[in-house]
Design a protein around this nucleic acid. Structure first.
Lengths: 204, 204
DNA sequence: AGACTGAACGATTTATTGATTATTCAGTGA
DNA sequence: TCACTGAATAATCAATAAATCGTTCAGTCT
């Protein structure tokens, strides 16, 4: 016998309906009335489950982002050298953004609206990725691959220095390969720096 | 005896009149008819000296930018250590942008319009500053302060890594001191990198 | 009483109109 | 012929009106 749907079930149903609408027609062109109809309920009832339209979008984005975060965590914790993992992490980030922009303009529109209306959301994402970076730096330091005195600060600075690769507005027509080459260069700079590294003969 | 005004004189006159109008009322609120009247000529005549309104703004911006460039060149060529000069260069850049944003919204509007309609102009500025960077890197390398294999590429990467400090859209409410601290951190990362620098005892 | 509806409200978006303005060019005067 | 004018044109912008849509809430049903 089927039990009554819980509050959380209904939320899920709403998110599913909205996801379908948003991805077919875009966030802007989807109305609350349509989502409500898809769920077999009235528009007003949606507000018993979400404070507003944007919060439904946020729920969708959060769900998607959690998957991405898990993926990043895997990349950051393999057995590879720390610098290779840092490389993977930053490249994955770039590729995800680029692909969303190129082949999923609907999802991209949603991301843009959320970032605009809820700036704190972008900060939250940055902070999440920073914890991954911190762990990676810590591990790299322990392995002797990196020298890091302030983990949190250094993670912030890596994010600062790679900011360009997170904002498509700054990619004036650059193709993915060009962006990748540029990220490659920045990463090399971050890892090696400009200061001379005198070749030290290995201890006997 | 006053000789007839040359074409270049008239251009100068137009630029001066436009500069005054633009800085008092803004680019958008200034009409070609007004600039023409200020110069004692008809609107149509302006087009014998400039292809369009935006080109007048570009002339003004270019003039101003040349001064800035000269200033940067001075900063880059003092007797200080190369890393100090790199520091000065990047900080000057940040402060100029910040100040324009804060205390000269009119000039900032103009810069925004030009950047929007003439993306190549921003590229040209970046390229100019890159030549300064290249010279600085070359000098730093010669002095043994830096290790740089590809000058042009490294200069590009430094610009990439400090992109955030050139685009106020990315400064979500950050104050100048906070931005300066962040730039400081990125600069440290660029100069020192993450790789360990084993202390090498000086040759005997 | 609690879950839900759907009409009503106000804010936002879109469509339409009118006015302003950048730009052009046939024509004027020297 | 050459430098310039200023009215004509077309594009852009501002203002207004119309429609749509997010959100609320008094009321209905169970």
């Amino acid at each position: 016998m089927s039990s009554a749907p819980t509050k959380s079930d209904v939320r899920e149903q709403i998110v599913t309906a909205a996801k379908s609408r948003f991805s077919h027609f875009g966030y802007g062109k989807t109305t609350m009335a349509e989502v409500a109809t898809d769920c077999g309920m009235s528009p007003g009832n949606l507000y018993r489950f979400f404070p507003g339209k944007l919060d439904i979008a946020e729920a969708i984005a959060t769900e998607d982002y959690q998957n991405h975060l898990n993926h990043l965590r895997k990349l950051a914790s393999g057995g590879k050298p720390a610098r290779a993992r840092l490389h993977d992490l930053l490249f994955e980030e770039l590729r995800r953004t680029y692909n969303k922009l190129e082949k999923d303009p609907r999802a991209f529109e949603m991301a843009r609206v959320i970032a605009e209306e809820r700036p704190q959301f972008a900060n939250w994402m940055l902070a999440n990725e920073r914890t991954i970076l911190v762990d990676l730096l810590k591990d790299g330091h322990a392995r002797g691959e990196f020298t890091v005195d302030d983990l949190e600060l250094t993670a912030e600075m890596i994010q600062s220095a790679t900011m360009k690769f997170r904002y498509p507005q700054l990619w004036s027509k650059l193709t993915l390969p060009k962006l990748e080459r540029e990220l490659e260069g920045v990463l090399k700079l971050i890892i090696d720096g400009l200061s001379p590294r005198k070749p030290c003969p290995p201890a006997p």
